[in-house]
Amino acid sequence: MVLNSVLILGGIGLFFGLGLAFIGKKLAVKIDPLEENILQVLPGSNCGACGFAGCAGYAVECLKENADIGKCALGGEKVVRQISDILGKEAKIKEDSVAVVFCQGKDGISKDRFVYEGIADCSAANLIAEGNKECIWACLGFGTCMEVCPFGAIRMDEGIPVIDEEKCKGCGICIPACPRELITLIPKRHRVYVLCRSKEKGKKVREMCEKGCIGCGLCVKVCPTGAIQLKDNLAVIEYDKCNNCGKCVEKCPTKSIVLNNSSSSMQFLS
């Protein structure tokens, strides 16, 4: 009995062990060594900003013919260089960008239309009577962007998101999270932003928000390079022409144009 049980259990174990070893060898899936090399170079945080299923998915993609190897926003220039070294391919280097929230409507600055007591989520709040803010372009302030950010670069401060430029990798995952499309990626060398998206007339904007763009056009006149234009009552900066001089910032009567000098955008917002 004892012998039998030892034999049977040992036999089954041996059979399966050997079987596994044999089949594992026989059916081993060959992995391209280049793929592993690329995977090691990639940051490994699986943020998905490249549009593929994690870093492993992108490593496979890189090996394909005509693949765009410059898609890793998180790794930036360094990683793209390393990948192009591994593959012997040239790549277009992507410029470092940072997410910018185009609204300054803190609690009290942008007026509420009603008190929202539903699910604390921007998309949900946006569905109810076009949101709880007077301005339909205003940040709703429930922090949906903060929750999706894989790097913890967004924090909520008095009802608007503040982006930490040190932590922001420019992946753009927060962009679709905002139901009002207030977040845009802007190259880091551009420092002047018109932080408003309102297309209402100036009088209406003043009623709704203290820091909205009223479309007065003073910035258009003062800009030495002609980089600012008015479109639908809203000042829009053409970034190719802007030289970050900051003259428009001084002129703007509602302080809706902002010059971000610091490396971290926290300072100018506080």
């Binding site: 399966f16 062990g17 089949i23 594992g24 059916l27």
Partner: peptide, 11 residues
Amino acid sequence: SLVQLEEIFMK
């Protein structure tokens, strides 16, 4: 062992 086996096959 069976799950291991299935994993190898599926892979």
